[in-house]
Amino acid sequence: MAPADSAPVLLRGIDRAAFAVALVARLRRAGLRCGITETDDLVRALRVSPPVGRHALYWTARITLVRSQADLAVFDEVFAAVFDDTAPLPLSRSALPPGRRDDGVHVKVPAGGDGTTAGGGLPWATLPPAVAAAEDDEDSGLRVPELRPSALAALAGRPFEELDETEIRALGAGLQAALLRWPQRRTRRHATDPAGRRVALRPTIARARRTGWEAITVVRQKPIREPRRVVLLCDVSESMRAQTTAYLTMMRAFALVTDAEVFAFATTLTRLTPVLRHASPEEAVDQASAAVTDRFGGTRIASNLKAVLDSHHGNALRGGVVIIASDGWDGDPPERMAAVMARLRRRAYRIIWLNPRAGTPGWTPGVAAMAAALPYCDRLMPAATFADISACVEAISSRA
């Protein structure tokens, strides 16, 4: 049996650092964004795992040098030009035969590669293979997501009106992951825990009966912590038409993850909590749109807030986080808005107002209803993109 050292290595005898620098220089001239850190990563990777073929060298260079999906096309083009067309790369002088010390050499690479089998593991930046709709199988196993983190981050900064339904659903799924870190609150109930700081008298006395009333074993307990309640009210009037679908997706994420109470309002109030917990996101949004019969009409913010306070759902406001998503245009007088917000302030733990116009440069809360409600809000935050909503979630989590 041949020793392991005799296995063929593609770049045997070649200076790895010179090869990496030359390849990175070619990529940079083509427009790919890579520098010293990526070059060092490639050199280390070639030392740890020497490539045995063109396919292995391709993935080693791609994983270490490509940081963005946008750079993938440039990398593939340059790699093909270098290794398919045998373009010269300056390597180590010691690797050159006598008489060719001053000439460039070609890296001899086999034309064929290892190939990639269907279903094999691929790096994060790889697009999923195109499969016809007729070939889709529900039992085929895990699916590769169509959008990678870099693509989702780019979409999160775009306004709602520029997103299609597929992109909104993908961003809504990302918002659900962010809500898994929802803050908790300390309740008045306690549970037995050896790390607790409070002595549980009854269990301690019960155990002392077995030891002649000597408290040999001290039972401790600590408060039970539960996710903080959240009530979400979203404006679906005519002035909020561009944000309606995105806000419904946002409400669904809150309803699924944080066990929230969610409402939509225009001229009347509509509870959407059971509807938006549907397993299918498309069906949930469609049913919610059908349930809100007065959408894209006028707005009565103060009346709808009072309706929540007067209903049996008003108990969910006690000690909870109230999130109001609206641009502040209201048909009710500002005096009524101030009275309702003062009442809400006494009951809620925190009030966050999301305004899609707040992120506009030079914007000021000049609308009467918005100006009347602002003194009772803990924070006024923009909500024109999913990045704004994620920032709101992070702000609540860091302070609760």
Rank of each mutant, 00 (worst) to 15 (best):
Ala208Tyr: 11
Ala81Gln: 07
Asp259Ser: 10
Thr60Ile: 11
Ser303Val: 08
Tyr349Lys: 09
Val275Ala: 02
Ala358Glu: 06
Val21Thr: 14
Pro129Met: 03
Leu10Gly: 07
Val230Asn: 06
Met251Asn: 06
Phe160Val: 02
Arg241Met: 06
Leu180Asp: 09
Arg202Leu: 13
Ala279Val: 09
Gly35Lys: 05
Leu57Gly: 03
Asp40Leu: 12
Phe79Lys: 08
Ala279Tyr: 03
Asp114Ala: 06
Ile36Met: 08
Leu309Lys: 05
Asp103Leu: 12
Val322Phe: 14
Leu380Ile: 03
Leu272Arg: 02
Val199Ala: 07
Arg188Leu: 12
Val262Leu: 04
Thr64His: 02
Val21Asn: 08
Ala339Asp: 14
Leu57Ser: 03
Ala342Pro: 05
Leu201Asn: 07
Ser49Leu: 10
Ala400Ser: 13
Val292Ala: 07
Arg189Asn: 09
Gln176Pro: 00
Leu89Ile: 15
Asp330Glu: 09
Thr270Asp: 04
Thr116Tyr: 02
Arg29Glu: 13
Leu23Gly: 02
Gly104Met: 06
Gly112Met: 03
Val393Ala: 04
Asp332Asn: 15
Ser92Tyr: 01
Ala371Tyr: 03
Ala7Ser: 02
Gly298Phe: 00
Ala338Val: 05
Phe254Ser: 00
Arg399Ala: 13
Arg148Gln: 11
Val257Met: 04
Ile396Met: 01
Leu27Cys: 13
Asn304Ser: 15
Gly121Asn: 00
Met251Ala: 15
Pro98Met: 00
Ala302Leu: 05
Ala246Phe: 01
Phe79Thr: 12
Arg343Cys: 01
Val66Cys: 02
Ala195Ser: 12
Ala338Pro: 04
Met251Pro: 07
Met250Tyr: 04
Val199Asn: 00
Ser150Thr: 11
Ala132Phe: 08
Arg29Phe: 03
Ile63Asp: 11
Glu283Asp: 09
Ile352Asn: 11
Ala18Gly: 04
